[in-house]
């Protein structure tokens, strides 16, 4: 029996960046509960990654490795998690509030009749309860919620929790989980993947985001933002005005009806800072705004601002940052 069971995601033969955050927080909570930390890894050809989970603090690693897990699907993955729960009987189940975690967390809560605490930004355990902080109303308020079911499922917001540092030489026993999933059990089948998955990080996991707004005037000006993103090692985001205009795909939209992000650095270029945009990025660690209008609301949340024309300021900023890198 473990105090905490952590589901860690993999991608392209590696643990995802979020795995260190989930195991770091999982370990801390397991220690608080006076128990151990189990990790569960699901996928195809992922057995070799169990060692990495051990290095990141897992005391035991449960592995469900089979061809049916090659592409993510709720039906198959849920079966594996339910088996892992049976093998581990944790008090608390943690995973990332990622695209995958947002499918699996609720499904697991339903399957095990557990309370679900979704997309939380802090977790504490005391007097038999799991207590979390969770942004609600798109970050316009924070709720403190306590759950008391025998097992509690919590999904942790990416980029918020302190990642575990790998300890070379640390290892954990590995146990095989046979989920007994047959290809026929899959009811939703991925037939094809369009727009071939790029190497690019998902916005929600990025450390640095360069976001453009309507003040960029048109899609033809995005080249300078791409160059800036390249120079700082960031990924591109956008306001809804830009997505609605069809200048950028909606996967890039940040805000209440887009993605919620908490990068280390968020550079808002020619974005006014409407309440719905702020909802998606106000928890960024450092915000920089570039805008011609000194009264733009974005300056109220920005740590640093430059009042000026983006088309003029951005290339100079890119140049300065490039020099730094050299």
């Amino acid at each position: 029996m473990a105090a905490v069971l952590a589901f860690v995601e993999t991608s392209r033969g590696k643990l995802k960046k979020s795995a260190a955050e989930i195991l770091g927080e999982g370990k801390r909570l397991a220690q608080k509960l006076g128990g151990t930390l189990d990790a569960v890894v699901v996928g195809h050809g992922v057995t070799a990654l169990a060692g990495d989970a051990g290095k990141l603090g897992a005391d035991r690693v449960l592995v469900a490795d089979a061809e049916v897990f090659k592409a993510f699907g709720v039906d198959a993955y849920l079966k594996a998690l339910v088996k892992a729960v049976a093998a581990s009987s944790p008090r608390l189940f943690v995973m990332a509030a990622s695209v995958v975690g947002k499918d699996l967390g609720p499904a697991l809560a339903a399957a095990t009749q557990s309370a679900l605490l979704a997309d939380v930004t802090s977790v504490a355990v005391a007097d038999g309860k799991v207590r979390v902080e969770k942004p609600v109303y798109a970050g316009k308020a924070v709720a403190t919620i306590a759950a008391s079911s025998p097992m509690v499922v919590a999904t942790l917001r990416p980029n918020v929790f302190v990642p575990a540092q790998p300890e070379d030489g640390r290892s954990a026993p590995v146990e095989v989980v046979d989920a007994g999933v047959k290809p026929d059990d899959l009811r939703a089948v991925v037939k094809e993947v369009l727009a071939k998955a790029s190497e690019k990080l998902d916005l929600t996991e990025a450390d640095i985001i360069v976001s453009g707004g309507r003040g960029m005037k048109g899609p033809e000006n995005w080249g300078i933002l791409e160059k800036l993103a390249e120079a700082v090692g960031g990924v591109l985001g956008a306001s809804r005005a830009v997505v609605d205009a069809g200048w950028r795909p909606h996967e890039e939209q940040v805000g209440q009806t887009g993605k919620t992000v908490s990068p280390k650095l968020y550079i808002a270029v020619a974005i006014s800072g409407a309440i719905q945009h702020l909802a998606g990025m106000r928890t960024s660690k450092c915000i920089v705004a570039i805008n011609t209008d000194p009264e733009a609301p974005i300056f109220k949340v920005a740590d640093y601002g430059i009042v000026g024309d983006a088309l003029e300021v951005v290339p100079v900023l890119t140049e300065e940052l490039r020099k730094l890198r050299e």
């Binding site: 924070v142 709720a143 403190t144 008391s148 915000i287 300056f299 740590d303 430059i306």
Partner: peptide, 26 residues
Amino acid sequence: RLEIEKLSPPAERAAGKIVGEGKAAV
């Protein structure tokens, strides 16, 4: 088996600063 114990306003961001105007501020 969930209880909302408290609702609070989000942590305020410390007031930021305008570094300057135009490319000279870079």
